[in-house]
Design a binder for these strands. Sequence first.
DNA 1: GCAAGCACAATTTTCGAAAATAATCGAATT
DNA 2: AATTCGATTATTTTCGAAAATTGTGCTTGC
Lengths: 220, 220
Amino acid sequence: MTLSEKAYNALRQDIIRGALGQGKPLRMAELSARYDMGFSPLREALNRLQSERLVVAEALRGFKVASLSMAEMRDAIETRILVETAALRAAILRGDDDWAAGIVAALYALKLQVERRDTEADIWELEARHYAFHRALLAACGSAWQLEFFDRLYAATERYRIPILLNRAGGQGRDIQGEHAALAEATLARDADLATDLLRQHYQRSAEIIGRSMQAEFAM
Amino acid sequence: MTLSEKAYNALRQDIIRGALGQGKPLRMAELSARYDMGFSPLREALNRLQSERLVVAEALRGFKVASLSMAEMRDAIETRILVETAALRAAILRGDDDWAAGIVAALYALKLQVERRDTEADIWELEARHYAFHRALLAACGSAWQLEFFDRLYAATERYRIPILLNRAGGQGRDIQGEHAALAEATLARDADLATDLLRQHYQRSAEIIGRSMQAEFAM
DNA sequence: GCAAGCACAATTTTCGAAAATAATCGAATT
DNA sequence: AATTCGATTATTTTCGAAAATTGTGCTTGC
């Protein structure tokens, strides 16, 4: 793997997980020290992240971490609903046994990690399996574009979910794993109307919880 | 404007317009000579274009222009229908007088250019106004994400439309400007069902024409 | 006291060369 | 004849320094 790719992976992770702070300028000298590499691979990675809206660039004034806002969060989640309900419908139509088995496996792996969330590493593993589950639902949709947009929007919304995951603050009394199980069940039963409905509700609840937590924490 | 940005604009245009040939490797030395700049700004631009799926990168083996295929074209157009019908509905709900006036202006400017398509520069101007018209329809949708996806998908499908535009080969007997006018009319009348229906048909016809032309030319 | 101008410092951007890797070609071997 | 190996060439990737630009703080003039 080239340094450019390593820089991309590391920066992307650090931005999504909040380690670099939203809106903060990214100084080349600091990044070079932090990731132990020269400017070239860092600038290449920052250019990729700029296209993915995780980083904002201004000519001759460098890069900064993209800012978070209530409006952007709502937009990202609404667009997720649009893209993912369509992709889920297509997957339900086209999915084969491998697709179905992948959902069962991802749901089970997610369940195991939900019960084991002690260290911070557990949280990251939980997050990885959460992504993998939602990805597995759509895997058979047949549209590379929709899967890419899913990835982009997942990363965008992950930035808002992670502070809540780390604080263990949000989702009081919410049975997320139950929602996941019901969603998987409806999908495997090929009930597209029910599955897309559950998916929509799942995300609308997330948006509400994130919204409340943002109002509390940042007064946005 | 920095060299990086110039490189991005120039490469993006040359890829979309087909000047660099689909699937062809992009050698740094050649690009450096062609655009008269060093490797750094070129590599930064190529990294951005990689994120936009106009360029494909393989570690230590450089960059190449993304390939075209029938399947990708169909996927891009289907996803355009998904995103744009939703954005158009939202714009019809939320659009104000400026939005409506923008559509009228863009349609008129497009009409003027349709009647004047002699030189190649005319074709590029036509293409710019075509983009501006479709963009104007969605401008008031309120979703930055959906507008970005529109841009991405427009660029992706433009690559397929341009050979047809240049050959004057496609769309025999198709009244594209009539379709645009009807679409604008339904939109301005705030008839969301009719407008999204016309938009869908507009793109499905494009997909058919592009599909026939690709089968004829490349035997794909 | 305060704005304008100017040197100085900090920072980004770009270049040219070096390092690292991949591709090519021919000779030696089986 | 086909294949492997090694040397050579071509190419990508990375670095370190130079160039260009922006930001800062101080002086000067009013």
